[in-house]
């Protein structure tokens, strides 16, 4: 029983991080129809910037804000410099159809190499702002720590802010309209180009939050968020790739599911398990939990 509760708590904490990454992928997918593999790169870059700030100032809050702003900025730069140029040159052909995906992969490589040149490829310790020792209740200690609590609260806050923006504000309405029917949105007077950039900015910020929150549990390297990218992608697919709520639910489902597998079966299975979850998601509900259209069939 105790073990199950532990698995659940850790699953929720991880799940929130996966949700944030999924959210970032979904935001970009909705605004530009690209699966942005560079999201892992953008997030780790933001995390390194936060790391730099925290080692210099010893102030996690400042580092967090700095990292998230950097993430937002990088998102804007990538959309404006890379994606716009890409869509201007788009033409037919087997590669052209894949060009955005491949460009995002290239960008992932580029960002990592640059990080490696600036900070080195070795592990950098990212010191947690609060204790990573589990809470103690009477005589039992659960693996859920203050840091986990911070993760859950931080991620939940970001999601609530996003939901409010998306559902209640004009900006959110414009974002959704531009995602669903860019042409009609333009005819309604919405500057779709700028809105698209905004989507990338939000995605960049969400990815940065994910990176900065997950890293204090571990050291960072230019590659340390690769697996988060995969978890985020699977979570987004579970949720239907189009839906923000789906991304959150998908992330939590995956987080909790993997946590139970790790607890009861063994750590060695984390990637095979992720793969099985992905396959199951694609087979059982190809349109995702919250997807309405079967968009993924060729």
């Amino acid at each position: 029983m105790q073990q199950a509760i532990n698995a659940l708590l850790i699953g929720i904490s991880n799940g929130f991080i996966y949700s944030l990454m999924a959210l970032a992928l979904v935001l970009v997918w909705r605004s530009t129809r690209v699966i942005n593999f560079a999201q892992a790169g953008q997030a780790i870059l933001s995390t390194y910037i936060a790391y730099e700030i925290v080692t210099r100032t010893d102030n996690f809050i400042l580092a967090f804000i700095g990292g998230v702003l950097a993430g937002a900025l990088v998102g804007a730069v990538v959309e404006i410099l890379l994606m716009r140029t890409l869509f201007k040159h788009v033409s037919d052909g087997p590669v052209a159809a894949l060009a955005p995906v491949i460009a995002s992969l290239g960008l992932l490589g580029l960002i990592r190499s640059v990080i490696g040149m600036v900070w080195g490829n070795d592990q950098k310790p990212f010191f947690p702002p609060v204790s990573t020792n589990g809470f103690t209740f009477g005589s039992t200690t659960v693996p859920f720590s203050r840091m986990n609590l911070l993760i859950v609260l931080g991620a939940a806050t970001v999601m609530i802010i996003f939901t409010l923006i998306f559902q209640k504000s004009n900006l959110g309405l414009a974002l959704r309209a531009a995602a669903f029917q860019p042409e009609i949105a333009r005819l309604a007077g919405i500057r779709v180009g700028a809105i698209r950039t905004t989507g990338w900015i939000f995605a960049g910020a969400a990815g940065a939050v994910a990176g900065i929150l997950i890293s204090p549990n571990d050291a960072i390297t230019p590659y340390s968020l690769d697996s988060l990218l995969i978890f985020g992608f699977v979570a987004a697919v579970i949720g239907g790739l189009e839906s923000l709520i789906g991304a959150v639910v998908g992330g939590l489902t995956l987080g909790i599911g993997l946590s139970f597998i790790l607890t009861y079966i063994g750590t060695s299975l984390i990637f095979p398990a992720t793969f099985v979850v992905l396959a199951l998601a694609l087979i059982i509900r190809p349109q995702g939990l919250f997807g309405s259209k079967a968009a993924r069939n060729a």
Partner: peptide
Amino acid sequence: VSEGKSVIPELTVKENLALGGIW
């Protein structure tokens, strides 16, 4: 008003109307 009912199906009626006034 483009060909084929120029509305955004995923949005509500209210949101579709609001769209025209955002700018």
